[in-house]
Write a protein that binds this DNA or RNA. Structure first.
Lengths: 116, 116
DNA sequence: GTAACTAGTTACCTTTTGGTAATTGGTTAC
DNA sequence: GTAACCAATTACCAAAAGGTAACTAGTTAC
């Protein structure tokens, strides 16, 4: 591989990672997505309790995920009104990333707790 | 799957993702790791130029990666002194995560630029 | 001495992130 | 009317993240 093509390839790799980080940035987005991608539909309150995210943050994160077409929001005609959040089909393409991070986290925890 | 085992599994998944995020948090760590894991050894200045990270931030990030045993630092007896950074063997276990994020970023960019 | 190269460090600042607590607004049950 | 449930939203605050510019310190070449 020539030096030039290597540089270009590297640049693609860097910006690709940064593009991904831009969409799933922060402490909570991948946690929310893992719940919805692997666990299916959740209501707002369920998500908040299950993840431990406060309503303010959860609302903001869900909105951002919705903008990026990773989460769908459905208002249900119940009394009182409930809202269902679900991973979109497109969010399914993130499953590889989510699963890789889950596996590595489990692996890392074993390493750390085994050592200390 | 029972409700209880599902909850436990979910909790493991959430904390596994958070464990991973704790180690590779921020805007730059995965970018640095992708350079070192896929591209081999780099000196401080090379890394800074190649990634576009300012010395202050790069120094901080490398230090944190070193603490988590993902990066090794080797001072070379050259004039002037140079320092070589390399991904550790342990960092290789993150390759799955890095590659998944690179692939998704490329996929996502195609989707976005294709649509708009 | 001066410039240039290496690898950082320091001071300073702005922006972003994330958190708590209280509140809104609509509906139902008592 | 009052309490309770749902889904947020608002105001306020603290900490972290990240950036720029200038500077340190050691060595070499001129």
């Amino acid at each position: 591989m020539t030096r030039e093509s290597s540089d270009v390839a590297c640049d693609n790799v860097h910006s690709a990672i940064q593009d991904t980080l831009y969409v799933v940035n922060g402490k909570w987005k991948l946690v929310i997505l893992s719940i919805l991608v692997n666990g299916g539909i959740r209501r707002f309150g369920e998500l908040s309790r299950e993840s431990g995210i406060s309503p303010r943050i959860l609302s903001k994160e869900l909105h951002e995920l919705e903008i990026n077409q990773l989460v769908s929001r459905k208002v249900c005609d119940t009394k009182p009104v409930t809202v269902e959040y679900a991973a979109t089909e497109y969010a399914g393409t993130l499953k590889e990333v989510i699963d890789a991070m889950v596996r590595w986290g489990q692996h890392h925890r074993k390493k750390i707790t085994g050592q200390e």
